Simulated scan of single mutants.
Amino acid sequence: METESAIELVDDVIYKPGWTFTARDHSKRFEGTIVVHVDYPARNSNRDQAQDGYPEQITTYAEFPLVVKDCTDEDLYAALLEMIMSIEEHEAREFLRVRPTHWAPFHPHRADGMHRWAVRHDKNDLLGDLQFGIA
């Protein structure tokens, strides 16, 4: 698939309300590659917000590189769904907390939480958690 075609297909994707998908060409750095940027609504998951049910709404994002050179349309959509599942998993790990301290055992923004999750999933690195940010 041409990168321009992949970018157009990504830009037409719809998921949940407030989620937007944009792609940019990354082939000057890596042949046949795009970067998919996903903005999505979330709640502030900081520990101090847990007691009150996470009242603060925020917008956050994640970015994923994707080699599209040998992709079909179906391959591209499957890769996007994997990205979505990664985002949903990331958010779930932030919000799983334990009373009374509201400790988050698998929090993806804490080195110990990243490590606990990686060990359980036979991952050798923690880089997957580093593609999330706050817009």
Rank of each mutant, 00 (worst) to 15 (best):
L130F: 07
M1D: 00
E56Q: 10
R43K: 15
R24A: 12
P65I: 05
M114W: 07
R24Y: 12
W117L: 02
L126A: 09
R29G: 04
S45P: 12
R93M: 14
V35L: 07
E74C: 04
E63I: 06
R99W: 05
Q49G: 09
I7W: 00
I87H: 11
M114Q: 15
L80H: 08
A104T: 08
R120F: 04
N46R: 14
V13A: 08
A50W: 08
D39S: 09
N46F: 07
D48Y: 13
I87A: 06
L81N: 13
A135W: 10
N46W: 06
E88N: 11
V68R: 00
M83T: 05
A78Q: 12
E31H: 06
R116D: 11
A50Y: 07
L126I: 09
I7H: 01
N46E: 14
G128D: 15
D48F: 10
H109V: 03
E8C: 11
P17A: 07
P55V: 07
Q51H: 09
H90K: 13
H90N: 14
A42Q: 06
I58A: 08
D25T: 06
D11C: 06
I34W: 00
Q51T: 03
V38D: 00
T20H: 10
L126R: 10
Q51Y: 06
E94L: 09
H102I: 01
I87C: 09
Q49D: 09
P17R: 05
V35C: 08
E91G: 06
H115N: 03
A111S: 10
A62Y: 02
F132K: 10
A50K: 04
N44K: 08
D39Q: 06
R47Y: 03
N44F: 07
T60S: 14
F132T: 05
R110Y: 04
P17F: 01
P108Q: 03
A79D: 13
P65N: 10
D25F: 02
E8P: 01
V35K: 07
R29Q: 12
F132N: 05
G133C: 04
Y61Q: 06
A79E: 15
A104P: 12
I34M: 01
I34Y: 00
H37S: 11
I134N: 11
I7S: 00
D75S: 11
R110Q: 12
K16F: 06
E2D: 14
D52V: 03
D125Y: 04
T3S: 12
P108F: 03
T33R: 10
Y77N: 03
K28R: 13
M85V: 12
A78F: 08
D73P: 02
D73K: 15
G113H: 08
D52C: 08
E31G: 02
F64T: 01
V10W: 00
L66V: 01
E88C: 09
A135M: 02
E88R: 13
V119R: 13
A42M: 05
D129Q: 13
E63S: 12
E4S: 13
T101P: 03
I34H: 00
F30V: 14
V38T: 01
A104G: 14
Y40T: 01
I84D: 07
P100K: 12
I84T: 07
T60Q: 13
G113I: 07
L127P: 00
